[in-house]
């Protein structure tokens, strides 16, 4: 039996009204984050992964569907429940320059989640700040400095320290390394993995990079044009993807090997406008395997092997 999920998304949809119509940023996305599990969300720009992250953080409200914290829908949490949610779910964003206020000392930045929900006294908070600073590989003295004194990699460590301060259960990591140099990326990824083991954290790792997700996650959810097209164990998704889009993503994740095999399913075409998504399967205009049914009817997300896939062709026996 799996333990009760910390955070759960049920049929989340978010539509933005823009000039020219409705933009379906996210459609009917369901997933759940359970203790100790690490889920990767993979997709390209405009696929809705950032919208999903914002909905899970209650920075935005879904057009339909709901987000539940320990079984309670977010809008229905009482004050104590809301505080518990804010402590338990902590984000780390992509850009460490934008995520640290330039006019605050590192100590106050990290202590903010502790002091905001009134869980710690100042003395306790300062002790915790020193503790998490050392855990992310910085010295406690860093607390007295301001963000501009740190490099991008160090800033991201500070952002991670802040996320850890309230002893969370779930980290929502939105492209936490993609603005970093390669040598720094590896450092941060290792650090996140260590911390996850140490705290027994659940993580939701949003990324455009399949290789990073493979390294970080047990399970992968692939999103295209706001919909889940495939999900399954990370290792299988990266070796035997079922959905043609996942195959294209895998082919596009260029290995550092000049003798890598030629790709059977090279990516084609461009992302259609999310204002007028194609009828049927959202991927059909770019799909080398598209048939008539793909243009007429949207495939349901149904189980296949050890995962889920939304593809007519895959369901009819594979590609």
């Amino acid at each position: 039996m799996t333990p009760a999920p910390i955070l759960e998304a049920r049929d989340l949809s978010r539509t933005f009204r823009v000039r020219g119509g409705n933009l379906h940023a996210l459609s009917e996305v369901s997933l759940s984050c359970s203790p100790g599990r690490s889920i990767g969300i993979v997709g390209e720009s405009g696929c809705g992964k950032t919208t999903l992250n914002r909905l899970l953080l209650q920075l935005d409200r879904p057009t339909s569907g709901e987000v539940l914290f320990r079984g309670v829908p977010l809008p229905r949490l009482d004050t104590a429940g809301r505080h518990a949610y804010r402590r338990a779910v902590q984000p780390v964003f992509q850009n460490p320059y934008s995520s640290l206020s330039p006019r605050m000392r590192v100590r106050n930045i990290i202590a903010e989640p502790l002091l905001a929900t009134g869980t710690a006294t100042r003395a306790e908070a300062w002790r915790r700040v020193d503790e998490v600073l050392e855990q992310v590989g910085l010295s406690a003295r860093a607390g007295d400095r301001v963000p501009s004194e740190f490099s991008g990699g160090q800033r991201q460590r500070i952002a991670i320290a802040r996320a850890l301060a309230s002893r969370p259960e779930l980290l929502l990591l939105d492209e936490p390394v993609s603005s970093q140099d390669i040598s720094i990326q590896a450092q941060i990824l290792n650090l996140l993995k260590d911390l996850r083991a140490e705290y027994g954290l659940a993580t939701l790792f949003v990324s455009h990079n399949l290789a990073t997700v493979r390294f970080m996650c047990d399970e992968v959810v692939v999103i295209y044009l706001g919909r889940i097209v495939e999900r399954g164990p990370a290792a299988r998704i990266c070796t035997a993807p079922q959905h043609p889009y996942t195959r294209a993503l895998l082919a596009a994740a260029l290995p550092a090997d000049p003798d890598a095999h030629a790709d059977t399913t090279p990516p084609m075409g461009e992302l259609p406008s999310p204002l007028s998504p194609p009828p049927g399967c959202p991927y059909n205009p770019r799909c080398p395997h598209a048939r008539d049914i793909c243009r007429a009817e949207r495939p349901a997300l149904a189980s296949r092997h050890d995962g889920l896939v939304a593809c007519h062709v895959a369901h009819e026996g594979g590609i």
């Binding site: 920075l59 804010r86 984000p91 964003f93 995520s99 006019r103 605050m104 989640p113 905001a116």
Partner: peptide, 26 residues
């Protein structure tokens, strides 16, 4: 639109404290 304002919200800070601690100093 800076991320630290979103982060403050996810820490449970109210609007008044966000304005006084994050917006005004900046």
């Amino acid at each position: 639109n800076e991320d630290f304002v979103d982060l403050a919200r996810t820490s449970g800070l109210g609007h008044a404290r966000i304005i006084f601690r994050h917006i005004l100093p900046n």
